[in-house]
Design a protein around this nucleic acid. Structure first.
Length: 607
RNA sequence: GCGGGUGUAGCUCAGUGGUAGAGCACUUCCUUGCCAAGGAAGAUGUCGCGCGUUCGAAUCGCGUCACCCGCUCCA
């Protein structure tokens, strides 16, 4: 393991440990030995998540006029997953190459003939200290017809060497490997002729393991008669429910395109390898917006032309002449602003997917990445998905997913036949120059424009999709800080502070009487606590020294500490009576505030 | 799924076949006039789980589960 990996693993372990010790996140079913890839949020974690959830909800729908909320069920008609492509894409049987772990679809393996070479093990030469390394694992690979056997032997030597290096966590360059390969001695070679075999990987020639189903959707059985043949799926994403309910929301809410529907909810994926704590888990919570917009052609008809994006474009207020590109940029901007509000502004990176990365239906996709101890990983994806999703559901369900746009119909009515033909020609040219997917046939393009000129279209969509659990982890990782302190006796101590933004902190305020054996202090502190807890999450603590109580709250990220002292009781004269010390977590600074002004001071900072 | 590592008190960890441990944390009491103070007392474990070897297993073997690292996967 490299130094970096060690450091990041150690940093992660500290966070995991703090999460358990202070009740943020526990392993699921821990008393039974745990359950792979699922996690529970303890008292503080539940508050943290709730704060993030409502920050998102407020920002995405309550503070906006053009986004509506939805809360759909996790179980849905399985036909949804056929329409969305989830069933087909992952129903395949996959086989894995025994040499490289590369996977290939079981039904895509080309038949090959040649000699199957088997080895029982290998001597890998000597370590610098003169110790010889031997491996006893058997491997098998194909030497295709016409190949010199020595080439196949070389691949076997490489495979042994790489396997050894992998277990040692060495990373060698190609030259080092080449030098070492020549020293490998293969053992127990046997050869067998094979004809038209589909048991070897077409590229690596390694023998393939057994075929395994590889669908990442979790199955369940809805109703007493359901069987393995007609399973229902736990949704692998929340987005499809939004598409499936698009018409109902549209028809019941008196909205016009452009508008959005957003949803927060659980999703499930049977991940091969859950890892990095809660970052990749099998049950997780998504926060997704589907923002429906007019197709660019409709914007062009209404506004004359579609606004072009350029660096520094004003994205603060949506404009009628925006096409998908500006809407997409707009949402990237909006989401970035959100992350700033929860204190993640300075750890974000952006990855714009290249043409090759994109799914065939996607116009653009940007990943918002965040620095985690284990690397820079995706927090949110913002995709411009065209009309793919709604069109798929229109096709599979047979129910129209079009909207009628009167403004578009009126504008289209004013177009001359030449103008119409020009629009169609432009689209046909665009279809011909596609680099991905099949171009839409001319007849379909014309039919689509026919509907468009009458004011009908299937809306296009911009999809910002965020993971709540990842966000919580990002916030915790960003906030985690340790400093070493040496006390008067020279004893070293590690001080842990969670520098959470006050908006997301699970506890907003700690309330402390300076001393617990002075009933007046305790009574006053109780009074302040009773006042504050109606408006925010508070924690009352009177045990141990005041410094220790501050430290306990620092460790869980409580931004403010309020101490009731003798000045509060009026000992230093009436001007300080009924004032308290407000202590700030990040710098320990203190200020005196009158009890009656506390709410007005605290509320704007924590909401 | 493959390879490697780890699993002992709430946390961090010691304990190489013979009575289950430490530090911190926790609970109660005393003390304490602002940043993890002090004193007294207390609670805490099927040593991840199962099977085996042994007179005897936290310790040895096999299996299993979970987590971590690396592959692989990530719609």
């Amino acid at each position: 393991m490299s130094q970096d990996q060690k450091t990041s693993a150690a940093a992660m372990e500290k966070i995991v440990s703090l999460c358990k010790r202070r009740g943020f996140i526990f392993q699921s079913s821990e008393i039974y030995g745990g359950c792979g890839g699922v996690w529970d949020y303890g008292p503080l974690g539940a508050e943290l998540k709730r704060n993030l959830r409502s920050a998102w909800w407020n920002c995405m729908t309550r503070e906006r006029e053009d986004v509506l909320g939805l809360d759909a069920s996790i179980l849905m008609n399985p036909a949804i997953w056929k329409a969305s492509g989830h069933v087909d894409t992952f129903a395949d049987l996959m086989r894995e190459c025994s040499l490289s772990n590369k996977r290939v679809r079981a039904d895509h393996v080309e038949a090959q003939s040649g000699n199957a070479l088997r080895f029982t093990g290998a001597q890998l030469g000597e370590t610098p200290s003169g110790q010889s390394i031997s491996m006893e694992q058997a491997i098998c690979l194909l030497s295709p017809q016409g190949e010199h056997l020595e080439s196949a032997r070389k691949r076997a030597k490489e495979a042994y060497l790489r396997r050894h290096l992998q277990t040692q966590n060495h990373s060698w360059n190609d030259e080092q490997i080449r030098a070492a390969v020549s020293k490998v001695e293969l053992q127990g070679e046997t050869s067998q002729a094979v004809q038209q075999s589909v048991d070897f990987h077409p590229e690596t020639t390694g023998e393939l393991g057994p075929a395994r189903p590889f669908n990442l959707m979790l199955k369940t059985f809805l109703g007493p008669t359901a069987t393995l043949d007609d399973p229902t799926y736990l949704r692998p994403e929340t987005a499809q429910a939004i598409f499936a309910q698009f018409k109902n929301v549209f028809d019941s809410s008196r909205v016009k395109v452009p508008f959005g529907i957003c949803q927060i909810g659980k999703a499930f994926r049977n991940e091969v390898t859950p890892k990095n704590f809660t970052f990749r888990s099998r049950e997780f919570e998504q926060m997704e917006l589907e923002f429906f917009i007019r197709p660019d052609e409709a914007v062009e008809i209404i506004c004359g032309e579609v606004a072009k994006w350029s660096e520094g474009a004003d994205l603060s207020q949506p404009q009628p002449n925006w096409g998908w590109e500006l809407w997409h940029r707009y949402w990237v901007e909006q989401r970035t602003e959100f992350y700033r509000r929860i204190g993640l502004g300075d750890v974000l990176e952006y990855y714009w997917q290249s043409e090759q990365d994109l799914a065939h239906y996607a116009r653009a996709c940007v990943d918002i990445l965040c620095e985690f101890p284990f690397g820079t990983e995706e927090l949110e994806g913002i995709a411009a998905r065209g009309d793919f999703d709604l069109s798929q559901h229109q096709k599979h369900s047979g129910k129209p997913q079009e909207v009628f746009d009167e403004e578009l119909k009126n504008a289209a009515a004013k177009l001359s036949p030449e103008q119409r033909e020009a629009l169609i020609a432009k689209r046909l040219a665009a279809e011909q120059s596609r680099t991905k997917g099949e171009p839409m046939p001319e007849a379909e393009v014309r039919a689509w424009f026919e509907r468009l000129f009458k004011g009908n279209f299937v809306p296009h969509v911009i999809e910002p999709s965020a993971g709540l659990d990842r966000m919580a982890l990002a916030v915790l990782a960003k906030a985690f800080s340790e400093t070493e302190k040496v006390d008067e006796k020279g004893k070293k101590e590690i001080i842990t502070v969670l520098r959470l933004h006050p908006r997301v902190a699970p506890i907003k305020v700690g309330v402390f009487p300076l001393l617990k054996n002075k009933p007046e202090l305790v009574a006053k502190a109780r009074e302040v606590y009773a006042l504050l807890k109606q408006h925010m999450s508070c924690f009352y603590d009177e045990t141990a020294s005041i410094g220790r109580r501050y430290a306990r709250q620092d460790e869980v990220g409580t931004p403010f500490g309020i101490t009731i002292d003798f000045d509060t009781l009026g000992e230093q004269g009436p001007e300080l009576a009924d004032t308290v010390t407000v202590r700030h977590r990040d710098d320990g600074a203190q200020q005196r505030i009158a009890i009656k002004d506390l709410l007005a001071y605290l509320l704007p900072q924590v909401q």
